[in-house]
């Protein structure tokens, strides 16, 4: 219970602090406007399209670009306590390091998901107006949770863990490289995570659950619902594993002091 209390406090205030960051809103808004102007507005509305397919396709398109900014927006969260000189104070409290670590992870990751969710919702709002079908709104939370959230948790975990050892700026550059390699480089060019179950942009969930599918190496990903579940669980398991390694590293560092 004590651990849960410390976790909830850390979650609440890390969530608030990330949500109040002007950079979070600015970066997501600018990226969102770019995506809207370059991808959403120019593409014609497919008449008689399946609403679920439409919502999944548009959410996936918007989120693909926004997810690319997530790693950078989360990169400063781990080193932040040290930079603000709050580490010594935090270490003097009885709340366990694990409770603070996991609370921070879920808090900052979900806070980062908020503006992304709002932009996805705005995009769906645009299509709801075009199609005069307000039921599209009701589909969006489910689609967002299946396609976008696992990727955010995956990226969030690695952003928090990697920056325990890497400088923020270096990690941000490496993250952009990873994003291009893991999501855009075709597998026939070099070994890549692109087109695999570990693709964080949610292509398998989109295809397996909603019948659409991200374009991958020239063709559309076609996945079953089981593969979609596999992809989601694999992404979340990798995130959890990374977080556990991070926790182990922090505990080791504390024990060494």
């Amino acid at each position: 219970m004590k651990t849960a209390h410390g976790f909830s406090g850390s979650f609440k205030y890390e969530f608030l602090m990330q949500l109040r960051r002007p950079a979070l809103w600015l970066v997501i808004l600018v990226t969102g406007l770019f995506v809207f102007g370059s991808t959403i507005l120019p593409s014609p509305l497919e008449q008689g399209a399946n609403p679920l397919h439409l919502v999944a396709d548009k959410t996936s398109t918007v989120a693909f670009f926004l997810l690319a900014t997530t790693g950078i927006l989360l990169a400063d969260r781990s080193p932040r306590d040290r930079a603000l000189k709050t580490t010594e104070l935090l270490k003097s409290f009885p709340t366990s390091l694990g409770a603070r670590w996991w609370g921070k992870y879920l808090g900052v990751t979900l806070a980062t998901a908020v503006p992304i969710a709002l932009l996805c919702l705005a995009t769906i709002g645009y299509y709801a107006l075009l199609t005069r079908d307000m039921s599209l709104f009701a589909l969006e939370p489910l689609v967002f949770a299946a396609i976008v959230l696992p990727g955010i948790f995956f990226i969030g975990a690695f952003s928090l863990v990697c920056t325990l050892a890497l400088p923020t700026a270096l990690y941000s550059i490496l993250f952009i490289g990873y994003w291009v390699w893991g999501n855009l480089v075709p597998p026939r060019l070099m070994p890549t995570l692109n087109c695999t179950l570990l693709m964080p942009s949610g292509g398998y969930a989109e295809s397996g659950f909603f019948g659409g599918g991200a374009v991958c190496d020239g063709s559309t990903v076609t996945a079953t619902a089981a593969q979609a579940w596999e992809s989601i669980l694999l992404l979340l398991a990798c995130a959890a594993l990374a977080m556990l390694i991070g926790q182990f590293y922090l505990n080791w560092r504390t024990a060494k002091a």
Partner: peptide, 15 residues
């Protein structure tokens, strides 16, 4: 964080 929020957060971490 505001002063009140910061102290509330510390209070939670202090148990």
């Amino acid at each position: 964080l505001t002063a009140g929020e910061f102290l509330d957060y510390i209070g939670i971490l202090k148990g």
